[in-house]
Design a protein around this nucleic acid. Structure first.
Length: 648
RNA sequence: GCUGGCGUAGCUCAACUGGUAGAGCAGCUGAUUUGUAAUCAGCAGGUUGGGGGUUCGAGUCCCUUCGCCAGCUCCA
């Protein structure tokens, strides 16, 4: 044991202090400014408090407010302050866990009466009081025995405590009246918190287990800088304004109806137009990429799902069976068995492979009522589903083709994206070797292509590993995008075959892939991405023609006819004042307003006002206007703020 | 499914502790003929999500059921 602390800093220099010195001491030794700005430290890769005594040779980095790694420390401390406040105002409250999360923090409490929104405000005020007291966070190592005594009245903490191994370090943190079993680290004192807010309250199962009791969770968020907190709250506001349920109503795109059934979507004409354009685009795209289109029935004999294994692995998500002449039928939850049946309609030679079969297939899945959410989580949805039947040797090529396809598709909508490789889940079919093999195939192809990716452990489908593409929308949120799943299981279950070069029978592999995934979810996501302002090619109404007065309606009518004749979705809006009609068009987010008055009618021109551009208008010849819009549609141009990023 | 909250006109929302359901927008009709984000007037619109109960009286209180919302759990 050394009596010295040798701290190696990121710049390579070394600070020597007496053993037992803390990261805070190191910061002070470097400079008073840093000592003041320090929040926590990273010692040998582990984030620790400034007050933790250190010794020996360590690599040390001081975290300041500017460091992204410091934010979770602050938020975790905020969770403790919240618990401090709750314990003061609700003395008997049991405490569960209170971690920092991506967007903030939460703390779970066991209470007789759930929290009310008014109570949140009182907690917030009490937290402010705790912060004003500037209580230091004190860390203490304790034995299991000591901990048992300290938390004698905290059943939840005791339960957690018993999971500690004999030689694990157990620590508690104390600030003012509050003591928590906690690994830390924390900011030096509660006074470091200034910009925090409590956001919501909701039930949450203890330990995330729906068989256990439900606790009351309080969510909040915290930042070092007031500006960051304000921006975060503004982002939440912005997200609210973009909510696809709200915009879907305002723009008359889609709805659901309790009489039709929850989670079953009604596509109104305008929403259907958007969907149709997406489908047309995708159809064109995949035909170009070597796919063939198929159709399969919505209701299928249950026998098919016995073979596929869906009944065994997916039954809790399937609609119930219906009896038809003694046979049991099910609405299909997936399209793959149907496509396989098409594959098996005749024999295949290796020369036929790969076979790429695509369908906009509507599937029905039973989702528990509490999970339904607008268009994003529904019970009936249409997948742009495709299955590639190929040999093992062709997989790599097929993945490469898919990467290209996905790229073209996502950049068209103006989505940057990231890639994740999802590996074997707990509940899975097939041998470990097959899984390892398949995961390696996907990873190798990605690496060969130079596509960066992250690994999602255990996130695969039950029949094979998958590549998940995550879209990043206009306000930086991630969405589930295309997925590609490798499947060696269904070919086995169905006994798929092809005749090889050697005249022997071989088993093909299958790739399942979707691009938009669910049409419903994708359109819902697009609405939020574009904030309802669709690019011209997708806009349900592309041009609204506005005569200045009734006198020019005839001229306006001929413009509408001309545009419609060219396949442009144009509509005439007469009556009312021009201002009122402009306002209406803006509110409906029609991309072009075409004004026709005396000057335009006589010159054969049109005054073109672009959505969101205010009074800036351009006078154009009518054919020129028509051709410009046609070109915009043809190229599927995006509004400037969504310009395609060809780097992906 | 679970915890909590919410369901009033097509939409957004009012209606004190139980005492005659109301407004704006949208719609319809008429007037106005308008040059770039709301012209004026009139009319119509409701078994207050459904069912049951308490009460002289229920939008309001209770029970039940359906749906929606925030999360949890689960997922495209």
């Amino acid at each position: 044991m050394s009596d010295l602390l040798r701290a190696k800093l990121p710049d390579g220099s070394v600070k020597e202090l007496p053993a037992g010195s803390t990261a805070g001491d190191v910061a002070a030794a470097i400079g008073p400014g840093l000592a003041k700005a320090a929040v926590a430290a990273v010692v040998d890769g582990e984030t620790v408090d400034l007050v933790r005594p250190l010794e020996g040779e360590v690599e040390l980095r001081i975290l300041t407010e500017r460091d992204p790694d410091a934010l979770p420390v602050l938020r975790h401390s905020a969770a403790h302050v919240l618990a401090t406040a709750v314990r003061t105002l609700r003395p008997g409250a049991g405490i569960g866990f209170g971690p920092a999360i991506d967007e903030g923090f939460y703390y779970d409490f066991e209470v007789e009466k759930p929290f009310t929104p008014e109570e949140l405000e009182r907690f917030q005020s009490e937290m402010e009081r705790v912060v004003a007291e500037d209580q230091p966070f004190r860390r203490r190592r304790v034995t299991k025995e000591e901990a048992r005594e300290l938390f004698a009245d905290d059943a939840l903490k005791l339960e957690r405590l018993e999971e500690f191994g004999a030689d694990e370090v157990i620590t508690v943190y104390e600030n003012g009246p509050f003591l928590d079993l906690c690994r830390g680290p924390h900011v030096p004192s509660t006074g470091r918190l200034s910009n925090f807010t409590l956001l919501s309250t909701a039930g949450a199962y203890w330990r995330g287990d729906e068989r256990r009791q439900m606790l009351q969770r309080i969510y909040g968020t915290a930042f070092f800088k007031e500006k960051d907190l304000q921006e975060h709250l503004e982002r939440l506001e912005e997200a609210k304004k973009r909510d696809h349920r709200l915009l879907g109503k305002q723009l008359d795109l889609y709805s659901t109806d309790a009489r039709v059934g929850p989670g079953l979507v009604l596509w109104h004409p305008k929403g259907a137009t958007v969907r149709m354009e997406i489908e047309n685009f995708e159809r064109e795209l995949i035909l170009r990429h070597g796919y063939e289109l198929v159709y399969t029935p919505h209701v299928v004999s249950e026998r098919l799902f016995e073979i596929s294994g869906h009944l065994e692995n997916f039954a809790e998500n399937m609609f119930g069976a219906m009896d038809v002449e003694g046979g049991r039928y099910r609405p299909k939850p997936m399209n793959c068995p149907g496509h396989i049946a098409i594959y098996q309609a005749h024999q295949h030679s290796y020369r036929d492979l790969p076979i790429r079969m695509a369908e906009f297939g509507t599937v029905y899945r039973y989702e528990r009522s509490g999970v339904l959410h607008g268009m994003l989580r529904v019970r009936g949805f249409t997948q742009d589903d495709a299955h590639v039947f190929c040999t093992r040797g062709q997989v790599s090529d097929e993945i490469v083709r898919l990467l290209d396809l996905v790229h073209e598709m996502l950049t068209t909508f103006g989505y940057p994206y990231t890639v994740e490789l999802a590996t074997k889940p707990e509940k899975a079919l097939g041998s470990d070797e097959d899984w390892d093999d398949a995961e390696a195939m996907l990873a190798d192809t990605l690496r060969a292509r130079g596509v960066p990716y992250e690994v999602d452990e255990g996130g695969g489908a039950f029949y094979g590993p998958k590549l998940d593409f995550k879209l990043i929308d206009a306000i930086g949120r991630k969405w589930q995008g295309p997925t590609v799943q490798l499947d060696f299981n269904l070919p086995e279950r169905f006994g798929l075959e092809f005749v090889g070069e050697d005249n022997e029978r071989h088993r093909p592999l299958m790739l399942h892939r979707v691009l938009v995934g669910s049409m419903e979810r994708f359109v819902g996501g697009l609405v939020e991405h574009y904030a309802g302002a669709f690019p011209v090619w997708l806009a349900p109404e592309q041009v609204r023609v506005l005569p200045i007065s009734e006198q020019w309606e005839e001229s306006a009518r001929s413009l509408v006819a001309d545009l419609k004749g060219a396949g442009i979705r144009a509509a005439l809006h007469g009556r009312d004042t021009l201002s009122a009609r402009i306002r209406d068009a803006e509110l409906h987010k029609v991309p072009y307003m075409a004004v026709v008055g005396e000057r335009e009618a006589q010159a054969g021109t049109v005054a073109v006002r672009r959505r969101g551009a205010g009074r800036k208008q351009v006078i154009m010849d009518r054919p020129e206007f028509r051709e410009q819009i046609l070109e915009e549609i043809r190229s599927r141009a995006l509004d400037p703020e969504f310009q395609r990023n060809e780097e992906g």
